[in-house]
Write a protein that binds this DNA or RNA. Structure first.
Length: 847
RNA sequence: GCGAGAGUGGCGAAACUGGCAGACGCGCUGGACUUAGGAUCCAGUGGGGCAACCUGUGGGGGUUCAAAUCCCCCCUCUCGCACCA
């Protein structure tokens, strides 16, 4: 009996069915081929947004497709639940982070189930759960034992608002990526993972990542920033202090006319203190260090510096050149000191011009001479060495390796490869994170907490006030302890870990989530990992996706895992955007507050633009609202239709409507056709053939689009074609009609599982669609009796021929020439060339 | 500045290895039906033209029988990085 399409009823019914039948629960010990799909886990903010919807719907569709291929599919979900928002909520609202997080997870779990995303919920994990962070601490201790976790004094990025240190990756445009406050520099003793030692390996391993997007690989390469060159050891003329520099242009070493060092360089204070120029230099240094590092400031920033009063001896020629503190020298790159060659480096050139420093040419173009007095910019192209001692007359490019060898032989320096990748600063002066399992003892130093005492549990009663120190520092019960080594009173480390540590290994814990004896069972992890298909946002390209690669390398070295890349295939989904409206007086407006391009509150003209959905821009759409109105299937269908999932998508209310109407039409269509399926009489054979050809073409195209291209928009286009074909199919056999309809339900089911399951069961099936198999293409069904071949004259289409697919070239040509539209155009002309592309076209070139 | 990607109807977009540009959908136009619905069905829909036909994939050149697709130059937009020595 036909009932109207009631998505909510159907959806809760099938969600219950999947739960009751443990459909998404995975047997780790299965013999079936395995497939591990992972969508990046969410931060439990308390409410799903459309970014989650695209991420998890895409993942779920691929999971369901692979289940239908007969694979054992692991699809877990969890919570990246440590982090600042929960702590900020505690400060603002007084809700303890743990409670807040728990409530948020509960709410979001309900939403996720409602969306029909199939997960093995038995494997759910939260990084803030002691059962999880115990092993984060354990891993930290392994890193510590291997010397990969070290504490060192370093200038760090400090957010004055969040009162915490930020990793370089968390600073955007000189501002905190979370709150937007301008970041300042501060010297602190901090824990680091020595990730920079892994730079080359991370770079080399990119070749294993052929199924990652090129853009991500490129970004990582740039981030790791390998450059080849030389270290050259200069000395302070007056004191003999060594000043090593890194340069990619050792061929210009004879042209050094001054040296620039970063304001933070330790040598500055060491040299200048107690000299007459101390006051002036230190004042300048202080000013330079306070200057922002934001893009805007840097671009327009004038090169500035101050002379230290000291000189530097160039080892290669004994030249004595002035030592300057310069704002363009970066402490964080190379050695913090730059050999400055104004003739051949534009920055050095500008600096030299400004402070009237000498310019010495050591590379000249072949045909002309360069005069420092008339040069208007640095000469950075290739040329011949001059004023370069033993290398005069040689082309600079060829001389480069010789110069490096010569530096090495004479003890002046050595070949060096420099990386921009820095060590990973993981200390955070905040409460809501994993406590670093270290005890500081006056006698024994930094002592690791013994493994049998893990986890070091976060205390619950703490005072949440941003003081610049971890709230844990105020918590004496937590802080005061005894040294595990000597037994004397000692203090616990009060900093917690960057949450990126938590997310660097979660993909393995899902495989063995409740193991209390080990971080995980290595055999199981080696069986299921690496992740076959990893889905997440491009914003993680240089953070999470480098950190977790680093972890995998270390864990492989430790023997925990046998591979060194966490994911075989990576897919980055696009952002969900929507038009936002801005009024100069009333600021951001809801769509409903805009009438005819004017603000309905003040009447002013509104500026509208498409931008990423965000709370501040008031252009978000709530998944709950969509599910209430139309159901989860409509939301899922809409989010995967129209736009390829890796591209930015612009939200359209009409598009959602369209998706809903399609499902309703499908519902009606299947019900209407049901009586016809029972007829045993033969239909018209050519009608059957046509319907089945469309059916199998849909299977062929849609399978490729889902499996390889991850293009649900085009897969859906083929499904729509098939639905249209079913709609207009008359006088077909019940068998053919059934095959066509069941194909629609199968191929559509990964996208809109609930309605498909319901219709599938109404067609008499007692098992879930997920227990049926993905349809296979019957090649003979694709064969066409007649195809259209285009006839062109001089490349323009002039006629069309309906022919048998296996027609001979000669016959085809003859038919083309005889075509009623073509023939008259050939009269009196000479055919110069005849091109026949079988099954496609005939092109006649005439004069 | 460096690196990457993109530019196709009113809109989201298709187009295999160079072979009928605009699949599929939204919107729109006209019609049908009606239990008047956020419905359904039929027809049309790149632009110009009554038409035959002409024209059309950011702009300009080129290769080719044939170019959205390949090559060169230019423009615009998006993203990432950025005083990297």
């Amino acid at each position: 009996m036909k009932t109207p399409y009631q998505p909510q009823d159907i959806e809760s019914k099938w969600q219950q069915y999947w739960e009751d039948n443990k459909t998404f629960e995975v047997d780790s010990n299965t013999d079936k081929p395995k497939f591990y799909l992972l969508s990046m886990f969410p931060y439990p903010s308390g409410v799903l947004h459309m970014g989650h919807v695209i991420n998890y719907t895409l993942g779920d569709a691929i999971v369901r497709y692979h289940k239908m291929l007969g694979e054992e599919v692991l699809s877990p979900i969890g919570w990246d639940s440590f982090g600042l928002p929960a702590e900020n909520a505690a400060i603002r609202l007084g809700i303890p982070p743990e409670e807040n997080t728990r409530n948020n997870i509960t709410r979001m779990r309900v939403q996720m189930k409602r969306a029909g995303w199939g997960y093995d919920w038995r494997r759910e994990l939260a990084t803030s759960h002691p059962g999880y962070y115990r092993w984060t601490q354990w891993l930290f201790l392994q890193f510590f034992k291997k010397g990969l976790a070290v504490k060192k004094q370093a200038p760090v990025n400090w957010c004055p608002n969040d009162q915490t240190v930020l990793a370089n990756e968390q600073v955007h445009d000189g501002c905190c990526e979370r709150c937007g406050t301008e970041v300042i520099q501060k010297d602190l003793s901090q824990w680091f993972f020595t990730m920079s030692t892994m730079a080359q390996r991370l770079l080399d391993n990119h070749e294993k990542l052929s199924q990652w997007p090129d853009s991500v690989i490129k970004m990582q390469q740039e981030w790791i920033g390998r450059s080849e060159g030389a270290r050259i050891d200069f000395t302070v003329t007056e004191t003999g202090d060594k000043v090593p520099v890194f340069t990619t242009r050792p061929d210009t070493v004879f042209g050094v006319t001054f040296m620039s060092i970063a304001p933070e360089h330790p040598l500055v204070e060491k040299l200048v203190i107690g000299t007459p120029q101390e006051e002036k230099v230190m004042a300048e240094v202080k000013r330079m260090r306070q200057m922002g590092t934001s893009v805007k400031e840097l671009v327009g920033m004038e090169k500035e510096g101050v002379f230290t009063g000291f000189h530097i001896t160039n080892p290669v020629n004994g030249d004595k050149v002035p030592l300057w503190v310069a704002n363009f020298a970066l402490m964080s790159y190379g050695t913090g000191a730059v050999m400055s060659v104004p003739a051949h480096d534009q920055r050095d050139y500008e600096f030299a011009k400004k402070y009237d420093l000498p310019i010495k040419v050591v590379i000249k173009p072949e045909d002309i001479d360069l005069d420092p007095k008339t040069m208007t910019e640095a000469y950075v192209s290739e040329g011949l060495q001059i004023n370069s001692g033993p290398f005069d007359g040689k082309p600079n490019k060829a001389a480069m390796p010789e110069i490096i060898n010569w530096l090495d032989e004479n003890g002046f320096g050595a070949k060096t490869i420099n990386y921009s990748l820095r060590d990973w600063l993981l200390s955070r002066q905040r409460y809501w994170g994993v406590p670093i399992p270290i005890i500081h003892c006056n006698d024994c130093g930094a002592v690791p907490v013994p493994e049998d005492q893990l986890p070091v549990t976060l205390p619950k009663s703490v005072e949440f006030k941003p003081t610049g120190e971890s709230p844990l520092k105020q918590c004496t019960d937590f802080i005061n302890t005894t040294c595990p080594s000597c037994g004397k009173p000692a203090k616990r480390e009060s900093d917690t870990m960057d949450t990126f540590v938590d997310s660097s290994w979660y993909m393995y814990r899902y495989i063995d989530p409740r193991n209390e004896d080990a971080v995980f069972d290595s055999d199981l992890v080696n069986k299921w990992a690496p992740v076959d298909f990893y889905i997440g946002g491009i914003e993680h390209a240089t953070m999470h996706l480098i950190y977790s690669r680093f972890f995998a390398c270390v864990m492989q070295d430790m023997g925990l895992i046998k591979f060194q890349e966490p994911a075989k295939r990576l897919f980055c989904q696009g952002m969900v955007c929507k038009t936002s409206h801005y009024c100069n007086t009333c600021k951001w407006l809801h769509e409903t507050e805009v009438k005819d391009g004017k603000c309905s509150k003040c009447g002013e003209t509104v500026v509208s633009e498409v931008s990423k959905m965000s709370k501040t821009k008031l252009n978000t759409v709530s998944p709950d609202e969509i599910m209430n109105k139309f159901g989860a299937d409509t939301m899922r269908l809409y989010i995967l239709s129209d736009t390829p999932p890796d591209r930015e998508r612009i939200w359209s209310e009409d598009g959602v409507q369209g998706a809903y109407r399609f499902l309703r039409r499908l519902w009606d269509l299947v019900h209407d056709k049901m009586p016809d399926l029972e007829t045993t009489k033969d239909g018209d054979s050519s009608n059957d053939k046509n319907l089945l050809r469309v059916t199998h073409n849909t299977i062929k195209q849609a399978t490729g689009d889902i499996d390889q291209n991850i293009q649900f928009n085009t897969a859906l286009a083929r499904i729509y074609e098939l639905v249209n074909a079913i709609k207009s199919a008359n006088n077909c056999s019940g068998k053919a009609l059934r095959e066509a309809i069941e194909t629609v339900l199968k191929v559509l089911s990964p996208i809109t599982p609930h309605i498909c399951e319901e219709l599938w069961s109404k067609l008499g099936h007692t098992q879930s669609l997920l227990d049926s198999s993905w349809p296979k293409v019957r090649e003979e069904a694709l064969k066409e009796d007649e195809i259209t071949v285009v006839v062109q004259i001089n490349g323009k289409v002039r006629g069309k021929l309906a022919v048998a697919p296996d027609i001979s070239k000669d016959d085809l040509l003859a038919m083309a020439k005889a075509d009623e539209k073509v023939a008259p155009m050939l009269e009196g002309k000479q055919i110069v060339k005849e091109i026949v592309v079988p099954k496609r076209l005939v092109n006649l070139v005439i004069k």
